[in-house]
Simulated scan of single mutants.
Amino acid sequence: MNQQRLMQVLLAPQISEKATYIADKNGQIIFRVIADASKPEVKAAVELLFKVVVKSVQIANIKGKQKRFGRGTGVRRNWKKAYVNLMPGQEINFVDGGAA
């Protein structure tokens, strides 16, 4: 896979109460990824950027919500998130900026 492409696959970690709960319970980390990312690309990107070993990846497509803007209505963008399951003993610490 092209290393330049892998650097663009991950957009941001998803930080929320649900993401923290999933990280504690299942050892999974949630990332926002680009719309056309595949599981092997996400796995390779996480391993390249954070120097960890990835066990598995699950991907979910999130539909954009309908929202009102004044009198009119609009739709937020669809986006994709990836649940990354690391091997036991592996950890990503975002506070220090990388692998622990």
Rank of each mutant, 00 (worst) to 15 (best):
G98P: 09
E47L: 11
R32T: 07
V95H: 11
A99P: 13
V52E: 00
N2R: 07
Q66C: 09
R76H: 14
L6V: 03
L48I: 04
V9R: 03
F50W: 15
K65P: 03
R71P: 00
K55V: 12
E91I: 06
F50M: 05
V54Q: 04
A23T: 07
F69T: 12
A99F: 15
K51C: 06
D24S: 13
G74P: 02
R5Q: 14
N26V: 02
D24H: 10
N85T: 10
R76Q: 15
K25F: 11
A100E: 13
K25G: 07
D96V: 09
A23L: 09
K80F: 08
I29Y: 07
S38M: 12
F31R: 01
E91G: 05
P13E: 01
A12D: 15
S56Y: 14
E91W: 06
K65L: 11
G97N: 10
D36N: 08
Q14E: 06
Q28R: 06
R32W: 03
K51S: 11
I29K: 00
K18R: 13
V95Y: 15
P88F: 05
N93I: 01
I15V: 11
I29Q: 01
Q8P: 11
Q66Y: 14
D36Y: 04
V42D: 00
I29W: 03
A82N: 01
I22M: 12
K39P: 09
M7S: 15
L10V: 03
M87R: 09
K65V: 10
N2V: 05
A23G: 06
G64Y: 06
I15R: 05
P40D: 08
A44F: 09
Q90F: 07
K51V: 07
